[in-house]
Lab assay of single mutants.
Amino acid sequence: NKASVVANQLIPINTALTLIMMKAEVVTPMGIPAEEIPKLVGMQVNRAVPLGTTLMPDKVKNYE
C-alpha cells in the first residue's frame, strides 16, 4: 500500500505548504502520493484542510 499526503495540522485556505504541515500515511481513498511532498512545498491550498485530512489534487492550486 502506498502512502498519501495527510495534513499534520489545520492548513488555512491559501496557505503555502511546508514540510512540517504534511505527513505520509496509508489512507483510503488515496490522495496525492507521499513521494510528491517535496514538489508540494510552496504550493498553496485552495481551501482549508483540517488536521488528519488527506490532501487530494483538487485541494492544491496548480497541482498536476
Rank of each mutant, 00 (worst) to 15 (best):
P50L: 09
T53A: 15
V49P: 04
V26A: 07
L55R: 00
V45G: 02
A3M: 11
M22Q: 03
V41K: 00
E64V: 15
T54F: 01
D58M: 01
I37C: 08
V26F: 12
P33H: 06
E64I: 15
A48Q: 14
Q9E: 09
E35C: 15
I32A: 02
I37L: 08
G52D: 06
I32W: 03
G31D: 03
G42T: 00
A16S: 12
Y63R: 02
M56S: 14
G42D: 04
P12K: 08
A24M: 06
M30F: 12
P12V: 07
P29T: 04
P50R: 07
M56R: 05
A48S: 12
L51S: 14
T54L: 05
I37Y: 01
G31T: 00
Q9G: 03
K59I: 15
T53V: 12
L19S: 09
P57F: 01
V27I: 04
V60P: 04
A16H: 13
G42A: 02
V41Y: 00
Q44Y: 15
L17P: 07
Q9H: 05
M21R: 00
K23E: 08
N46V: 14
T15Y: 05
E36F: 12
L10P: 10
M22D: 06
V60E: 05
L51P: 14
I37Q: 05
K2M: 13
L19K: 10
L51M: 15
A48C: 13
K2V: 14
Q9A: 09
L55W: 00
E36K: 12
P57N: 00
P12D: 07
N46Y: 08
V26E: 08
G31R: 00
E35S: 13
P38S: 10
Q9T: 10
P57R: 06
L40T: 03
A16Y: 15
N62W: 10
V45H: 01
G52W: 02
V45R: 00
K2C: 15
I11G: 01
E64H: 14
P50C: 09
G52C: 06
V26M: 12
G31E: 03
I13Y: 08
V45S: 04
M43E: 04
E25I: 10
K39F: 13
M56A: 06
P29W: 07
